[in-house]
Design a protein around this nucleic acid. Sequence first.
DNA 1: CACTTTCTGCAACGTTTGGTTGCAGATGAC
DNA 2: GTCATCTGCAACCAAACGTTGCAGAAAGTG
Lengths: 120, 120
Amino acid sequence: MTTVVDDDLWSAIGDPTRRKLLDLILSDGPASASGLSGRLPVTRQAVAKHLAVLDRVGLVHVAPAGREMRYGVDEAQLARAVAQLADVGSSWDARLRRIKKLAEALQAASDTSTNNDKKE
Amino acid sequence: MTTVVDDDLWSAIGDPTRRKLLDLILSDGPASASGLSGRLPVTRQAVAKHLAVLDRVGLVHVAPAGREMRYGVDEAQLARAVAQLADVGSSWDARLRRIKKLAEALQAASDTSTNNDKKE
DNA sequence: CACTTTCTGCAACGTTTGGTTGCAGATGAC
DNA sequence: GTCATCTGCAACCAAACGTTGCAGAAAGTG
């Protein structure tokens, strides 16, 4: 268990601009760097660099279309990223639950063993 | 729905060192910067900076204990972070599922209309 | 064909962030 | 009192995110 997280993949989706980029491509289909930059508060070059990062970790793939470079999401890789999010989330969630349970147990123990100071 | 993600919170847990830090504190309880740096491949100062970041977004809280500064996780805030992970994950997951379903539908349509070229 | 538009890629530069080393101060242990 | 250790601050380096500027290539239009 505790599937080891891929730090490269994680930090790729850790950047807010890259997350928005993935959102845009996911909702409207493959697009070019210029087209995407028009819908984000960053320049075309910044978008191009982010797409290069996403491409390096396999989250998007690029295909030439006329004079454009059209980027689309790699569904399998994004699915892996989603799995990692769920994995870390559930791991922390489990620990939080365990801590809470332990705290309740301690509380109960102190209540039963010494029913003295605390009124009620 | 589509709870807006808190970029500060997200980027706080986006760093691999900070994630390990949270893991360590979660599993072994509150600890000092010096103690934590002994279990990570970074210096005490780097750990201190990361703890400051985590403290700024409320993921940990600090309490003086003797001459130490002891850091513990804020369970409510970590729970919120986990919820955001789950939120983004399920959003992407839903879109991937929709895309896949659409692709299958198109495939089926082309199969029924022209049952010719592809041999099974 | 020539001209303009609009894509792209590359280079230089500035700022923030993650990391280091070095040093001074404060506090617990002996 | 002395020593060990934990803390905080400052300087410095490298990588990442963002910008501007410029040159080249491909599509559209006269």
